[in-house]
Structure formats: C-alpha cells, structure tokens
C-alpha cells in the first residue's frame, strides 16, 4: 500500500477552486493522482462505481476524499452520511474543505464522520502551505483498504 500511488478525489462545485487546488498541488510537487467530481451526487456515483464512473481503471477508489460542503444536488453532509453507511466505504478518509467557518457546520461534519475539517484559505500561498501539509500527511499515513 505504501508504494501505491495515492489518489485524491476532489469534490467541489467551484471550477475556480478546483483549478487553484490543481495548481497548488503542482507547486507542492505532490506525487498524487487527482480526480474530480462537481457535486454530491457525482461524488456518490464515483464512489459507487456507477456510470459514468464504472471503469475503476480510469476512476479508481480514492485514498482520501477532499470535499466541499456547499455543493448542489447533494451537499457534503449528505455525502458524509451516505459514505459512513456503506460497509465497504466507511473507512474512507474524508477531509472537509469548505469556506464555512460556522461552529455548527464543524460540529455536524465531525458528528457525521469527517476525519478533518479545513477552511479554504483566502490566498494562493496559504492554499499551497495547507496542501503541502495535507500531502505530507497523506504521504506518511497508512490507509485501510476499501472493499467496495
């Protein structure tokens, strides 16, 4: 597992934020494969491996999911609830990364089983610093395999 390529699933409806995260990961020189989905329904479809994400060679199960909370169709809370109810996925590491700083959102996200809660930084430098920490954490961590 430690030598396998780490896969990060980004779930965010903001194309700007997705592009900025890709640029920031590039600056960090993280050896990580980035996949992206744009709302909660897509995130669930991806994890389930249903169309258009049925090809696991193209859409492998992620090591970690980095997820926004405020997304259309199904939001981050809905996805958290769904994931934690799936026997094969409940061990998936999920990191919420949102613009919200509301205490209630933080409490609820942890209650629903997020592994961490990050607030989107206001500038690129801070984002790079944050993603560097995240990459270091992913690099040194061991993850339980998923059997979905």
């Amino acid at each position: 597992m430690i030598n396998e390529k780490r896969i990060l699933l980004l779930a965010d409806d903001s194309e700007n934020d997705l592009l900025l995260m890709r640029m920031a990961f590039k600056k960090v020189e993280a050896d990580i494969a980035l996949q992206e989905v744009h709302n909660g329904e897509e995130a669930i479809a991806y994890l389930q491996g249903v169309a258009p994400y049925s090809d696991r060679n193209h859409f492998p199960l992620p090591t970690v999911m980095l997820m926004d909370l405020n997304m259309p169709k199904k939001n981050g809370f809905d996805v958290l609830t769904w994931v934690r109810a799936q026997p094969g996925l409940k061990r998936l590491s999920i990191i919420v990364m949102t613009a919200s700083t509301r205490t209630e959102d933080i409490e609820r996200a942890f209650e629903l089983g997020t592994n961490a809660f990050l607030v989107k930084p206001g500038n690129l430098d801070a984002l790079v610093t944050m993603l560097r920490c995240l990459w270091d954490w992913i690099r040194i961590s061991r993850f339980a395999p998923l059997d979905a």
């Binding site: 700007n16 934020d17 640029m23 919200s100 989107k120 206001g122």
Partner: peptide
C-alpha cells in the same frame, strides 16, 4: 460574506499565477 469570498479566492489566486 461567505459567498463573496469565493470569487475573491479566484481573483487573488489567478492574478498571482
């Protein structure tokens, strides 16, 4: 305040890039 921050992140990030 929350929603106004999203376009700002883009302005700041892309002008730097």
């Amino acid at each position: 305040a929350h929603d106004l921050r999203a376009p700002l992140r883009a302005m700041q990030g892309f002008s730097e890039l």
